[in-house]
C-alpha cells in the first residue's frame, strides 16, 4: 500500500528572513568578540565564512521546525540549542579560522589549529556561567580537568547531536533543582 497521504501535503521549507539571519549573525559576532577579548587576540585576526554561518543558522532553524512538528510544538531548551545543535554544527562545518604567520609562537599555532573547538568551549562555558554558575566553584583543578577532557572530546570523539543533548541534560535539571531548593535543603516540588 503506498503512503499517498503525503502527496496531499503542500509544505515546503522556507528559509528564515534575511533580517533574522543577520540578527543571529550579529549575536554570533558578539559572542566571538567576547571570546577574542577573553583570550587577548585581535578580533580582526579571526576569519569567518559567513555563508557557512548562515548554513548553520538554517540547520538550527530546520531542527527547530522538526521539534515543532514531531515533538508537539516543543521549543528546544538552551542546552539543546546552543550545545547540541550550534556547537555540533560549528564542529562539523568549521566556519572559523586564523591564518598562521611565520613568526607565530607554538601557543598561537595551537590556538589557530583548535580555534573551532575553543570557540565551542567558550559557548559551553558561557552557558554554564549563566545557568550553572556553581559549576565553577567545584575547585580550579576539577574545572580545568573537566574542560580539558571536554576539549579533547570535541576534537577527537564521535559526538552526535543527541549525545550532546544527553550530556548536558544534567546541567539543565540542576538549574531547576538549584532554583527550587529551599534553605533547609527541601525542594519546592
Amino acid at each position: 500500500m503506498e503512503r499517498t497521504c503525503w502527496e496531499e501535503l503542500d509544505f515546503q521549507y522556507q528559509e528564515p528572513s534575511s533580517e533574522y539571519i543577520e540578527e543571529e549573525l550579529a549575536k554570533i559576532e558578539e559572542q566571538l568578540r567576547e571570546f577574542c577579548a577573553l583570550i587577548d587576540i585581535e578580533f580582526e585576526k579571526l576569519r569567518v565564512n559567513a555563508k557557512t554561518l548562515k548554513d548553520i543558522i538554517i540547520r538550527l532553524d530546520m531542527r527547530g521546525l522538526y521539534f515543532h512538528i514531531y515533538h508537539k510544538k516543543m521549543e528546544a531548551n538552551e542546552y539543546k540549542r546552543n550545545i547540541g545543535l550550534l556547537v555540533f554544527w560549528i564542529l562539523k562545518l568549521r566556519p572559523f579560522w586564523i591564518d598562521i604567520q611565520q613568526e607565530d609562537s607554538d601557543e598561537q599555532i595551537e590556538l589557530a589549529t583548535y580555534i573551532n573547538e575553543k570557540i565551542c568551549l567558550h559557548i559551553i562555558l558561557s552557558l554554564l556561567r549563566e545557568y550553572n554558575s556553581n559549576f565553577f566553584e567545584y575547585g580550579k583543578d576539577l574545572v580545568k580537568a573537566y574542560v580539558n577532557e571536554l576539549e579533547y572530546s570535541l576534537r577527537y570523539r564521535d559526538l552526535s547531536k543527541e549525545s550532546m543533548f544527553l550530556l548536558f541534560d544534567p546541567f539543565y535539571y540542576l538549574y531547576f533543582y538549584n532554583q527550587s531548593t529551599q534553605e533547609d535543603g527541601t525542594t519546592i516540588i
Binding site: 543571529e24 558578539e30 531548551n77 538552551e78 556561567r129 545557568y131 541534560d169
Partner: peptide
Amino acid sequence: NNTPIVRGETLEPCIRGA
C-alpha cells in the same frame, strides 16, 4: 519536551554568560 528556561532566546544566554 524539555522547555527552555527562557523562551524566545537563541544565543543570548551565552552572551550574558560570556
